[in-house]
Nucleic acid binder design. Structure first.
Lengths: 339, 339
DNA sequence: TTGTACGCGTTATCAA
DNA sequence: TTGATAACGCGTACAA
């Protein structure tokens, strides 16, 4: 491969001039610039990134690390949306994305440390998780850059983009109540997605019930695992548990959960009502566009996952370029009425 | 950040010795090694990747470039499976993946050139596409490494992993015929996914019909775009076109296509039969595990997309480490009977 | 507006 | 088994 020395020789200039052309400095005479550009084209010259990174102390890449393994990550449309949002923004900003999907928390933390401390990347987006406290704080102190999707530790005030699950729970539950439902099932998020200061959708559910004077029945609340089959089994348990006082509505904490619940409903001969029509009410948890292509009538809690990914990436780019932490953001989901 | 010089000083050895420890050379006395390791831990030393890459002339990363834009790529479960397969293998082999999703062919080719020629990556996986001929051949000649998912140019014999769409078409069509169907609709792949030596599912479809003595009716073949809505509209056209001689079966070339078609069927009051039961037959095109979680009864052409991604990555790793091209592979899909 | 010479942090070539 | 020193390719004080 040709180096700037080859280009310099060919264009009869110094390497510094070549470097200037490369970096779009204005201090190069037009005629010189064209000569250099011609030489670069002739030699099929491309600047070596490693040399650049070494010198500039930045790589132009950021890491995206999720601790749930590829089997989960690539089958969860919500995670996909978050990654997509981040990738889109990074692309606009000229950054490359290094995607890493270790299978557990410890490996994920090791990955973040490896990517950032070895300077493979200029910063990392890390999925919020327990046990990240010390590492993430250390990274911050030592000048490595990171932003988390959701909280990484209790009392975290900076460098995160979170979605308010409680607000979603309230909105969905109120909607069900407004249609006259009183036996409302909830398939909540898996507990390992929660953190001391990340509150559950179940809190919103309880609040809304309480405000409407409907007694809370813990048997109507099941834990899902954000997968289709998790939703399926949880829904079956809700439907079969109490034959005489069966739920007439189910609120799901994710889209796959809802698709699984839908399968369970169909197996039991129940078709969720569309619109405000009477009948069984099934509410999804992300209401992603891709889910609604498959089930257009599905309403529920619309979580801005794509925006979350985008904003996290945007925040990371700021953290990197300005060199200081940025206050966290909490996004509100909205309630999408079934079609 | 500490460098090997700091470590060397602290451990009272030369930088070369530190380097040896770093690279697990056996030519270091045990006692020296432990002293160096202790110093590294003390200083929280992490080797700088840029410096390493510059010196070693390899980065430990590979690029994955798909030319269809994030809106398509992240919403197509087939692409997701391919990426997942590649990522899993690269992870096992200790490579990082740089994911790039430009929106068109020209940008994709530029991306591959940028990533490889600037040495951001040691090689790239490129989605097969027209117009890649010259660039991909040039890369090959100049010693840059690449492997393509599907063919990149006519007469390509090396560095690709392809899935035989014709075989899939034959199998699915034969299955439909075996159940007594004679009016069989086909929603084939979008034409921009085809290349001179990549043959269409429609060829297999025709072959099977011909062998069974069923006349070919071009009105029963529609082009899809691999999306849910594309499948929906194509299926509606198939269902509404010819009221008196309507299709009794539809073969789809992808899973989203089938999910869209399913929506169309439901809207027309048609429920696809399960198993070998009589009734409307709907066959999917990828039969991915994730699709079957949503619609467990869906049968069709089961394409080994995950394996394709894995094998492509594996092939690329070979190409990189052995420095020479590897003969292409063609995978056969199988026919999955509806449950 | 252009050029010289050095440093970024590693690895590799020798020689000891 | 270890070490001095030269690369790797680019950016940048500093000088002209």
């Amino acid at each position: 491969m040709a180096t700037i020395y080859d280009v310099a020789k060919k264009a009869n200039v110094s390497v510094k001039t070549v470097s200037r052309v490369l970096n779009r400095s204005q201090l190069v005479r037009q005629e010189t610039r064209s000569r250099v550009l011609a030489a670069m084209a002739d030699l099929d010259f491309h600047p070596n990134s490693a040399a650049r990174s070494l010198r500039r102390k930045r790589t132009g890449a950021i890491g995206f690390v999720v601790p749930f393994g590829s089997d989960f990550v690539f089958h969860d449309p919500g995670m996909i949306e978050q990654i997509k949002g981040a990738l889109d923004l990074l692309n606009e900003r000229g950054y490359d994305m290094v995607l890493s999907v270790p299978t557990n928390r410890d490996d994920a933390l090791r990955e973040v440390v490896r990517l950032t401390k070895r300077r493979n990347v200029d910063g990392a987006i890390l999925y919020g998780m327990t046990g990240a406290d010390s590492i993430v704080k250390e990274l911050s102190e030592k000048g490595f850059h990171f932003v988390s999707l959701g909280y990484c530790y209790p009392e975290q005030t900076h460098n995160f983009v979170e979605i308010d699950a409680v607000a979603g729970g309230i909105a969905a539950t109120r909607y069900a109540i407004s249609l006259g439902h009183t036996r409302i099932g909830l398939i909540k998020e898996p507990s390992n997605f929660l953190l001391p200061n990340k509150r559950s959708i179940a809190e919103g559910y309880k609040t809304a019930l309480e405000q409407a004077g409907i007694p809370y029945d813990e048997r109507l609340v099941r834990e899902g695992d954000y997968t289709v089959s998790g939703g399926y089994w949880a829904a079956l348990r809700l439907l079969d548990h109490d034959e005489h006082a069966r739920v007439s509505a189910i609120i799901c904490s994710s889209d796959p959960t809802a698709l699984g619940a839908l399968r369970a409903l169909r197996e039991r001969g129940l078709v969720p009502a569309s619109g405000t029509q009477n009948g069984f009410l099934l509410l999804a948890g992300d209401c992603l566009p891709s889910t609604r292509l498959i089930e257009p009538s599905l309403g529920g809690i619309q979580a801005p996952l794509y925006e979350q990914g985008r904003l996290a990436a945007d925040m990371l780019v700021s953290v990197i370029s300005e060199g200081r932490d940025v206050p966290g953001i909490v996004l509100k989901p909205t309630m999408l009425v079934p079609a």
